[in-house]
């Protein structure tokens, strides 16, 4: 595949999408078409860009469930980067805003003769329950066999990936799947559910010795860009996580050194499963008085110590982490 002339990006005003667009524009002579919803802020995309780059952005407004809009929007697009997805809400909201639009975009992409469809999936889709502690997780690890037992976001991402694989096979649409870790950067808290649970003002730190599968947003955008442009990777899947991952303990210490006040309690790793069982048993006994947000299944998926591997992206995409983890953490704090 030669370098495409026009690429299309969904979710372009999102946290990752903005960086992806910026990196795509660094490729000379590449036209970047952004599909935005009516309420999305296009100014944030154009702000700070040189005039020459601004001239290579096209902004089309419409909804991904609108087949007529998609047919028009995908004309002459060689690569589609599909990053639009709902991040929160109920399972039905996430499916409605993530899975269903993906179906429509895949159909439209096949009809438009798109050469490659790049799906932004998630590292959370792996079925980690059967894996050993500290096992290395590469792209050959299976998807979660019971995603309905996970959180709604992960459930929707597993379904989205399965739908994409099935439809691309049926439609003959070349697919590349990118599975980023937890994306962080300026404007986003580093204390995610991978570190622990925020209960009011208190952070309940879960374990803390396992490496966090984080990726700095600029590093992730670079890998994502390459997944659309590098020849010969159709049908491939890539984990995108940064090198030198920090642990939960290290991250909290780092943030405290930077002057952040974090009120937390620590749950040792060996207590997580028994406490999860206790909580879920109580939630079941009370018929849902407390929501079943912590179950042994979910806990194992989030807090089991595992090593996520990024070597395939390095090997096939020639991805090199542009910004070191140390620098990325500092930038995030400053930002």
């Amino acid at each position: 595949m030669s370098q495409p002339r026009r690429v299309c990006v969904t979710g372009a005003t999102g946290f990752l999408g903005r960086r992806l667009v910026s990196r795509l524009l660094n490729e000379p002579e590449l036209q970047v078409r952004c599909l935005l919803r009516a309420t999305s802020d296009a100014e944030s995309l154009l702000r700070g860009l040189p005039l020459e780059q601004q001239q290579r952005i096209e902004i089309l407004r419409g909804e991904l469930h609108d087949a007529a809009f998609l047919a028009e929007a995908l004309v002459d697009c060689e690569v589609v980067y599909h990053g639009a997805a709902a991040l929160g809400g109920s399972a039905s909201t996430l499916f409605l805003n993530t899975v269903i639009p993906t179906r429509q975009l895949l159909t439209a992409s096949a009809e438009a003769g798109v050469s490659r469809f790049v799906l932004v999936s998630s590292l959370g889709v792996y079925g980690t329950r059967e894996l050993r502690r500290w096992q290395q997780v590469d792209e050959s690890a299976p998807l979660d066999p019971q995603p309905e037992l996970r959180d709604p976001y992960t459930f929707s991402k597993v379904r989205q990936e399965l739908v994409a694989r099935e439809m691309c096979a049926q439609l003959g649409l070349p697919l590349v799947v990118v599975r980023p870790g937890v994306i962080y950067g300026e404007g986003r808290s580093l204390l995610t559910s991978r570190v622990g649970l925020q209960v009011g003002p208190l952070l309940v730190r879960m374990g803390g010795r396992h490496p966090l599968p984080y990726t700095y947003v600029e590093n992730c955008a670079e890998g994502l860009k390459l997944a659309g442009l590098v020849p010969g990777v159709d049908g491939e899947t890539f984990n995108l996580v940064d090198d030198d991952p920090v642990t939960g303990h290290q991250l909290v210490r780092f943030l405290r050194r930077q002057g952040q006040r974090i009120r937390s309690v620590w749950v040792p790793g060996f207590c997580i499963q028994p406490l999860s069982w206790l909580y879920s048993t109580y939630a079941k006994w009370t018929e849902g008085q407390l929501p079943p947000v912590i179950t042994p299944y979910r806990s194992a998926a989030i807090w089991k110590p595992l090593r996520y591997c990024n070597s395939y992206a390095k090997h096939k995409l020639n991805w090199v982490q542009p910004i070191s983890t140390e620098q990325a953490l500092e930038r995030t704090i400053v930002g």
Binding site: L96, R159, V163
Partner: peptide, 26 residues
């Protein structure tokens, strides 16, 4: 409905198969 002893939920239906799937699976 899961909390009501006299009720048996026999199915969910939605024109969008993904929506029907997510409710049925959970």
């Amino acid at each position: 409905l899961q909390r009501i002893r006299c009720a048996d939920v026999v199915g969910v239906c939605d024109a969008h198969e993904d929506l029907a799937y997510q409710a049925a699976a959970r």
